[in-house]
């Protein structure tokens, strides 16, 4: 069993980015993740949904080591997170994360938000960092705001900058935690468009979202969580079809009502 798992870890390194086996996490007495298994192949696009408090954010934050876990294993690109601080940090460098509340640095311009990690983490020169950052700002269609401060942008613009910032370190996997749920309805589309384009480019993505239109369009797997467990997982087509788990059908009905 053990042998098999480590063997798998070696030869799947190229095509399996995230490999989660029997993951358990507690906040004090609260069991937030309960025997979660999840693998994300390179190029896969996984959408995670479920009711509030079901552990979606916690799961996605475990994947880049923002949260620790107590039991099970979580391999990120062949590195088991949490064993060794240095290796964990190196593995985190392969991820990009986008938060619900953007978390742009308010005292830095849009461009400096993007170049900060390029300069301090990747050790790029000022010039190089600016070129890379501008390329990504163009990709999210907001290059003209490079000199603005986050406070001067709309929510949709801020979130697109946050996506560009996360892309700058050239991650192998992008993690999104409800990237559109803090946005006004008219801004949701501009952010989703950027994410769809990213998916089309072949980016590996794990995305917590309740945007079912987006899930239908890009996800190749939809995962439904409740009470810290994965209750249902299915290819997008089946998930939205008639064969789903009763609990996820019920959930879908409630969120599709509005």
């Amino acid at each position: 069993m053990n042998h098999e798992k480590s063997g798998q870890g070696m030869n799947t390194q190229s095509d399996c980015i995230v490999d989660i086996q029997g993951l358990n996490k507690w906040f004090g007495a609260l069991h937030v993740l309960n025997d979660v298994d999840l693998t994300v192949a390179s190029g896969a696009r996984v959408v995670v949904c479920g009711p509030s408090g079901s552990g979606k954010s916690t799961l996605i934050r475990c994947i880049n080591g923002l949260e620790s876990y107590q039991r099970g294993t979580l391999c990120l690109a062949g590195t088991t997170l949490g064993l060794n601080a240095r290796e964990t940090a190196a593995a985190r460098r392969l991820t990009g994360m986008v938060f619900q509340s953007f978390n742009l640095f308010p005292h830095l311009t849009v461009l400096s938000n993007c170049t900060l990690a390029l300069r301090r983490v990747a050790g790029k020169s000022h010039r190089e960092a600016q070129d890379i950052a501008m390329a990504h700002l163009e990709k999210v269609r907001i290059p003209e705001k490079a000199g603005s401060y986050p406070g001067q942008l709309s929510g949709g613009q801020q979130q697109r900058v946050a996506i560009a910032r996360a892309l700058c370190l050239n991650p192998r996997i992008m993690l999104f935690d409800e990237p559109t749920s803090a946005l006004d309805p008219e801004m949701i589309k501009e952010v989703l468009d950027v994410m769809v384009a990213l998916a089309r480019d072949g980016m590996t993505m794990v995305c917590v979202t309740h945007e079912m239109g987006f899930a239908r369009e890009v996800a190749d797997q939809v995962v439904f969580m409740d009470g810290g467990r994965i209750l249902d997982r299915a290819p997008a087509r089946d998930f939205f079809g008639a064969s789903g788990h009763p609990r996820s059908r019920l959930f879908l009905e409630t969120i599709l009502k509005h």
Binding site: A89, F105, V121
Partner: peptide, 8 residues
């Protein structure tokens, strides 16, 4: 958290 996520 954002700083950590950016590996700073």
């Amino acid at each position: 958290e954002a700083a950590r996520a950016l590996s700073l």
